[in-house]
């Protein structure tokens, strides 16, 4: 669908450990992606700004969690949002998805003001995952994804009650899409497994599948690789590329800087509620302000640390930064 990307899933970056990924962790097969892309047809092929915020501030009592954050997400773009703990990343996500309504400033989707209610935001085409996985634990993987189809299903209460032909049609369509999405994230064989029984990494991917089921044009991922090993992180990166290729624009919050720098088209650094730096991964990586904000320690050392983090194993890089941030 969107063939204009420079970083297509074809230039597969080797895994951090240098091993071949097991089949279930590999990027979704192309035929699955093609079929899904046809079903979802969200991309228009332009790179126009789709999700924008202007001067968004959020104040909790005396605490200014966000201060005048302005950003713009282009269609088919992957943006990374990084920053130390407590920088306001998740607060910003919550403002974008209607969970909070900003104290001042405005969020717009395709030029229209974002609705205030999370359900309507999803209806408008912005889906999200959560920092701590929030699946419906006692529902099967399939049912979780079907719940995601809720907004796109044409099935009123009466239809739910009577189970007529239209009900069966909408149910069949929803199941069909859910199956494709589960195959897309590599969970096809787990469709009847309860969400709570899935391994951790699979739960994260199921959450992504559930979000994709709402046919979003923008997907917000809150720490999608938290707690994952190197292999799974790599698989997640491939998955996000594939999602972008479906025509969905993506914003990612992540602590793992290596992951962000190799994934995103643009990176935003949020520090103490303010947008500190914005630019390409290379620009951000080299910016001394970022280093300082993250670590607050002598620059030479940290720079070395960051570069080390960026070139060696992702896990150590990410955690190294986090540990340093207290200093």
């Amino acid at each position: 669908m969107s063939e204009e990307q420079a970083t297509s899933p074809d230039d597969k970056v080797g895994t951090a450990t240098g091993e071949e990924l097991p089949p279930e962790l590999q990027a979704p097969p192309e035929e699955v992606v093609a079929v899904l892309a046809e079903d979802m047809h969200v991309a228009t092929g332009t790179r126009e700004p789709i999700l924008q915020s202007s001067g968004v501030s959020m104040v909790f009592g005396g605490l200014r969690a966000l201060n005048d954050v302005t950003f713009s997400l282009g269609e088919g773009e992957i943006i990374g949002l990084i920053g130390p703990n407590g920088a306001g990343k998740t607060t910003f996500f919550n403002c974008l998805t209607g969970l909070y309504s900003p104290t001042s400033g405005q969020v717009t989707l395709r030029g229209k003001a974002m609705p205030k209610d999370p359900a309507r935001v999803t209806q408008a085409g912005v889906a999200r995952t959560f920092q701590n996985i929030r699946l419906f634990p006692s529902m099967t993987a399939m049912e979780n994804v079907l719940v995601g189809r809720h907004v796109r299903m044409k099935q009123g209460p009466l239809s739910s009650l009577l189970h007529g032909p239209r009900f069966r049609k909408s149910e069949a369509e929803a199941h069909d899409r859910a199956e494709k999405l589960l195959a897309f994230v590599g969970l096809g064989r787990f469709s009847d497994e309860l969400a709570r029984n899935l391994p951790y990494g699979d739960q994260r991917r199921l959450e992504i599948a559930r979000a994709l089921a709402t046919d979003p044009s923008v997907l917000l991922l809150d720490e999608p690789t938290a707690g994952m090993n190197a292999q799974e992180t790599e698989a997640t990166r491939q998955l996000i590329f594939a999602i972008r290729d479906l025509g969905v624009s993506v914003v990612v919050i992540e602590h793992d800087t290596k992951f962000i720098f190799t994934l995103c088209d643009r990176v935003l650094v949020l520090v103490q509620g303010e947008l500190l730096v914005e630019g390409s991964p290379d620009e951000v990586r080299g910016d001394p302000r970022v280093v300082e904000a993250y670590l607050g320690a002598p620059p030479e050392e940290i720079e070395a640390q960051i570069h080390a983090g960026a070139t060696t194993g992702s896990g150590t890089g990410g955690s190294g930064l986090q540990e340093g941030s207290t200093g």
Binding site: A119, R120, A127, V147
Partner: peptide, 17 residues
């Protein structure tokens, strides 16, 4: 059932709770 399991997540999935 989704509301029973996690109301906020249900709402984030577009369910007008």
């Amino acid at each position: 059932i989704a509301i029973r399991e996690d109301e906020d997540a249900a709402s984030a999935m577009g369910i007008r709770t």
